[in-house]
Simulated scan of single mutants.
Amino acid sequence: MKYTQLGRTGLKVSRLVLGTMNFTGEADATDEQSSHALMDAALDAGINFFDTANIYGTDEEKGATERIIGSWFAQGGGRRDKVVLATKLYGNMTNDGTPWHQQSWPNHDRLSALNIRRAVDASLTRLRTDHIDVYQFHHIDRATPFEEIWQAIDVLIRQGKILYAASSNFPGYKIAQANETATARGLAGLVSEQCLYNLFERRAEMDVIPAAQEYGLGVIPWSPLHQGLLGGALRKEREGTGSRTHVGRSATGLADPAVRAQVEAYEKVVAEHGMEPGEVALAWLLGRPGVTGPIVGPRTAEQLESALRAVELDLPASLSASLDAIFPGPGPAPEAFAW
Rank of each mutant, 00 (worst) to 15 (best):
A212G: 11
A212F: 05
E214V: 12
Y215Q: 11
V219L: 06
I220H: 00
I220R: 04
P221V: 01
P224V: 01
L225D: 00
Q227C: 07
Q227F: 03
G231H: 12
G232D: 00
G232N: 03
L234A: 05
L234G: 02
R235E: 04
R235D: 04
E237W: 10
R238A: 14
E239P: 11
G240H: 10
G242H: 06
S243H: 13
R244S: 08
R244F: 05
T245G: 04
H246W: 11
V247A: 12
A251W: 13
T252M: 15
G253Y: 04
A255K: 13
D256P: 05
D256F: 10
P257N: 06
P257M: 13
V259Q: 09
A261C: 08
A261I: 13
V263C: 07
V263E: 06
E264Y: 03
A265K: 14
A265P: 12
Y266E: 04
Y266N: 00
E267D: 01
E267Q: 12
K268I: 02
K268W: 10
V269W: 11
V269H: 07
A271I: 10
A271T: 11
A271Q: 11
A271M: 04
E272Y: 03
H273Y: 13
M275P: 01
G278D: 08
G278R: 13
G278P: 03
V280L: 02
A281N: 12
A281M: 03
L282R: 09
W284C: 00
L286N: 01
L286S: 07
L286F: 04
T292P: 02
P294T: 09
P294G: 12
I295F: 01
I295V: 15
V296A: 03
V296Y: 01
P298W: 10
R299M: 03
R299Q: 13
T300C: 04
E302M: 05
L304A: 09
E305L: 02
S306L: 15
S306W: 04
R309E: 04
A310E: 05
V311Y: 06
V311M: 07
V311W: 05
E312M: 11
L313P: 09
L315P: 04
A317T: 15
S320K: 15
S320T: 15
S322L: 14
L323M: 08
A325V: 10
A325D: 15
A325R: 14
A325F: 09
F327D: 07
P328Y: 06
P330Y: 09
P332A: 04
P332G: 02
P332R: 14
A333H: 09
